[in-house]
């Protein structure tokens, strides 16, 4: 019922890109996994299994799924505290993520980091970072290291649109452009930083135009259309990889939830009506409709996919729940490493 309604309201995306049917299926699955995973996060938060700050990605799944589909497994990713979706899209184990959110020993950071700080070195997933803007110079540094070593990797750096107002952003983008560093600066413009609309915080409302100050290639793309995000990121990645030129890519999206689990979904800063308007373009529905029109998926197929990802999420939950608390002696571990040279 809810789906039928959403279907009527949602305009299908187009399939006129170079993805294969299997790739599209993979993107749909990736977004659905993110969605179902985070719905359970909200539940776990209400139950007190997850604590602290927990920022959900619901509504923005196409950004993580589409952009990460455009990079190689040896490329690097760095992001903000709103990191669950990208971690899943990168292929991090739902078990280790959920265990981290539950603050357990089997979490990807052994329970030390929590929701805002997911890391997986083996997947070149260089973390969720909690200080707005703080990770953007790190992205430039990763780009610097790639160039220094003469590699052809790229660094994909996710950030919210509020980041463009921080000093760290300007310093990093200037150096990235000056020194031609292979970085894709991807802005997830969800229109708000907490309760502040971008028009109230940035003198320039078309965020991608900021790149002009650094003479940096720039583009914007519809962030609810996963295929469009993938295509735009591919172009930026190609430029970074083959020309070592950074790009500022503005991806226009919207968050369907509150800023974090401790904030209201709508309130003084945005109306329910506005939220409902944006929710008509649910990224999962946009792709599903297009695939349905092309005969690539039907209702039973969608139901099967949903059951499949729900089972994965349930397994992650059960795993996290059964994982022990971190041992107390781990409190003093990881402050510094033993120097080996």
């Amino acid at each position: 019922m809810a789906q039928a309604k959403a279907r009527r309201k949602t305009e299908a995306g187009s399939l006129s890109d170079d993805t294969t049917a299997a790739e599209r299926h993979g993107l749909l699955r990736s977004m659905l996994l993110q969605r179902r995973f985070e719905e359970r996060c909200a539940e776990a938060y209400a139950l007190g299994k997850i604590g602290g700050f927990c920022h959900l990605y619901i509504g923005q799944e196409a950004v993580g799924a589409g952009a990460i589909a455009a990079i190689r497994s040896d490329d690097y990713i760095i992001t903000t505290y709103r990191d669950h979706g990208q971690a899943l899209a990168r292929g991090m184990s739902p078990r280790s993520i959920m265990a981290e959110l539950f603050g357990r020993a089997d979490g990807c950071a052994r329970g030390k980091g929590g929701s805002m700080h997911l890391f997986d070195r083996s997947l070149n997933f260089l973390g969720g970072h909690g200080i707005v803007g703080g990770h953007v110079p790190l992205a430039a540094g990763i780009g610097f290291a790639i160039k220094y070593r003469g590699g052809d990797q790229v660094c994909l750096c996710f950030m919210g649109e509020s980041v463009v107002n921080t000093g760290a952003f300007h310093e990093a983008l200037n150096m990235a452009s000056l020194w031609k560093l292979p970085v894709v600066f991807l802005i997830e413009n969800n229109r708000y930083g907490m309760g502040t609309a971008l028009e109230r915080a940035s003198s320039i409302h078309d965020i991608y135009l900021r790149a002009a100050s650094y003479d940096m290639p720039r583009a914007f793309v519809d962030g609810q259309d996963v295929l469009a995000v993938r295509t735009a990121t591919l172009e930026a990645v190609r430029r970074a990889r083959s020309e070592s030129v950074p790009t500022l890519l503005e991806v226009r999206t919207y968050r369907f939830m509150g800023h974090s689990m401790s904030d209201a979904v709508a309130g003084t800063y945005r109306s329910k009506a506005e939220l409902e308007e944006y929710m008509k373009r649910d990224p999962i529905m946009v792709l599903r409709m297009a695939m349905q029109d092309a005969g690539e998926i039907d209702d039973p197929g969608m139901a099967r996919l949903d059951e499949e990802v729900k089972a994965i999420v349930q397994d992650a939950w059960d795993f996290a729940d059964a994982s022990p608390e971190p041992p107390l002696e781990s409190l003093f571990e990881d402050v510094l490493v033993e120097t080996t040279t």
Partner: peptide
Amino acid sequence: QADVPMPYARNLERAA
């Protein structure tokens, strides 16, 4: 506070 960055896990945070 214990001489470490603050951990996330509830039991570790309490200990710290």
